[in-house]
Nucleic acid binder design. Structure first.
Lengths: 349, 349
DNA sequence: CTGAAAGCGCTTACAG
DNA sequence: CTGAAAGCGCTTACAG
């Protein structure tokens, strides 16, 4: 990797002149500039951004402590972030959340030592350690929390979804179809799960429907057998619900599987609502009816907000001034109708 | 962010002494060292790794040009990489492949300017631009290609799956169940797709089975309607195949959907084999029979190989010497039985 | 043991 | 227009 000094030596000019020529600053004759540019191109010169970072105090780098990116929800959020960051000449150093949970302090220390300008925290279900939260306090750079919050990060900006409203939407949809006996399989461990659940309860209340404890199920994480077992229990009970609202599409898929394995027809015997609108929702049969989120927008806005906090205008926000105070930006959701919801079975009281 | 100079000033010692004390090098009295350490801790001193990178010529950073991470296959590969890198004190700067395709040269230039020590290229279906390949030539740092290769990167190390063998496995499994009329929906645009297809053909030949053109379908990308349409055509033909081998689980899901929509039972009427063993394969009904890959191992080995090329021993490889020459490491696959394959329907010639 | 100085690869005032 | 020098935050021989 050729250095500025080499290029300067080859051209027979000073390092300073070479620097000016290559960075497009005035103070060199056009002839000299051209000569330097051509030599630099020949020798494949690449300025060392690490030096620039040290000199300017800005690394043009952000840390991204990231969810497990195991489906297109996570994937699209990350893609949205990377796109916006890239547009502002920023890059992301990515560390999986798993590592944050297991050796959180060390991870944050690494970020500090690499002088990232800010942090995008996109956590999954697991709560990070106390040591992590501790280290976070001494991080002293802008932080944006994405999708989910947890205890200890109340002082940071947040970008996520309208989870509460989504919970309401699910109920509204089912009630419009005549359902009254609606169960829920939730994930209260997460802020998103709690919000969706509150939305569910609020929706039920608005429609004057009772929330029965026996129909309110809680899982500790999704992607395990838990949701499947709860769904089976719900469907096998003496008076099964006519509809089940799931924490997300993965849970909804488990409910679908349970219904199938018990010989129940969806939506004739039971209706199911998911949350997220993963790719898989439109691929399975019956297609999932789901509360669609907008992960790409979440990712873009989260990165955009971080750039604002860093004093960098995100490309799309143009010249608007950054909002004052703590931001809590919840991207709208909408009900995406599939085939997993139908009219409530008649003949029930 | 307090600097070495500040710590030195507060302690009333030279910068050099402070440096030695904090980096654990000899040449300072124990008393001085302790004093410096405690002051540094109080002031939350974090050494600037960018400086270290400039001085040592190593940034302890690699570039990761990355697939769309929209399912757990991609996700686990990336997680495997990050884990191994982290264990060697390396971090990854991640850029989505989409950006590589659209402004490839600029992306690589960015990596060069940030002085990444090496590159992990994990591409999806789309071929990068000529400009990208051009810039790659002048990158002059170790590169490992992951999962898929493409024209222009033959000179780099590769870590992926036994795609060919997987193609054979799929056929073997179906033949053992009595199938002879086997169709294929492939993705020849990718190296993985071509290898799986070759495996398919080899498997058919070994069993003395004919490969009929009308049953060999090709899609341009998955996740669209293409595979679904081909599956419908195959199933609606005058003499439909009794089994369909799909490029991957997403395509297999589309086949499952098509069979469902046409009222065909799986596996009674038609058997389906996928590839990947995505999470979704065990969640849908019927569960997908699929050629299981091992994405976590792929990611770990790819990162491990890159570290070897960088002269850093990956944690697990211990002290073994790095293999000579170009590595082409294909991680084994295995057939993961689900419920989407059954005995060939009798009564057919 | 301790400090002053050179150097990593640059940028940027400041002289000539 | 051009060059010599200081400085970014460190490490590392080299003197005292």
């Amino acid at each position: 990797m050729s250095s500025l000094a080499e290029i300067a030596r080859i051209c027979g000019v000073s390092i300073g002149a070479t620097s000016k020529a290559l960075s497009g600053k005035p103070g060199v004759s056009e002839a000299t500039r051209q000569r330097i540019l051509s030599v630099a191109a020949q020798h494949n010169y690449r300025p060392n951004r690490l030096v620039h970072a040290i000199q300017s105090g800005r690394s043009l780098t952000v840390g991204l402590t990231c969810n497990d990116f195991r489906d297109d929800f996570s994937g699209r959020i990350v893609e949205g972030m990377l796109e916006v960051l890239y547009g502002a000449d920023y890059d992301a150093i990515v560390i999986s959340w798993d590592l944050c949970v297991h050796e959180g302090e060390k991870v944050l220390r690494t970020f500090a030592e690499r002088r990232v300008d800010g942090l995008l925290m996109f956590p999954p279900a697991d709560q990070p350690s106390q040591a992590y939260l501790q280290e976070l306090k001494s991080f002293h750079r802008p932080i944006v929390v994405v999708d989910q919050t947890f205890a200890g990060v109340e002082d940071y900006d947040f970008v996520g979804s309208q989870d509460f409203e989504g919970g309401v939407l699910a109920v509204d949809h089912l009630v419009a179809l005549g359902h009254r006996d609606i169960a829920n399989i939730g994930l209260r461990k997460t802020s998103t799960g709690r919000a969706r659940l509150e939305g569910f309860r609020a929706g039920m209340q608005r429609h004057g429907l009772a929330v029965h404890d026996k129909w309110m199920r809680e899982i500790q994480r999704y992607g395990t057998e838990e949701a499947y077992r709860h769904a089976k229990e719900l469907l096998q009970g003496p008076t099964p619900p006519t509809a089940i609202v799931a924490f997300n599409d993965w849970v909804a898929m488990d409910v679908l599987a349970a219904a199938h394995d018990l010989g129940r027809r969806v939506p004739q015997d039971v209706s199911i609502v998911g949350f997220a609108d993963l790719k898989v929702a439109s691929v399975v049969r019956p297609r999932l009816t789901t509360v669609a989120q907008d992960p790409s927008t979440i990712g873009r806005r989260a990165a955009g907000r971080l750039l604002e906090l860093l004093g960098v205008m995100a490309p799309e926000t143009g010249g608007e001034p950054a909002p004052e105070g703590l931001v809590c930006d919840r991207v709208p959701v909408r009900l995406a109708p599939g085939e997993s919801c139908g009219p409530a079975p008649s003949g029930r009281v």
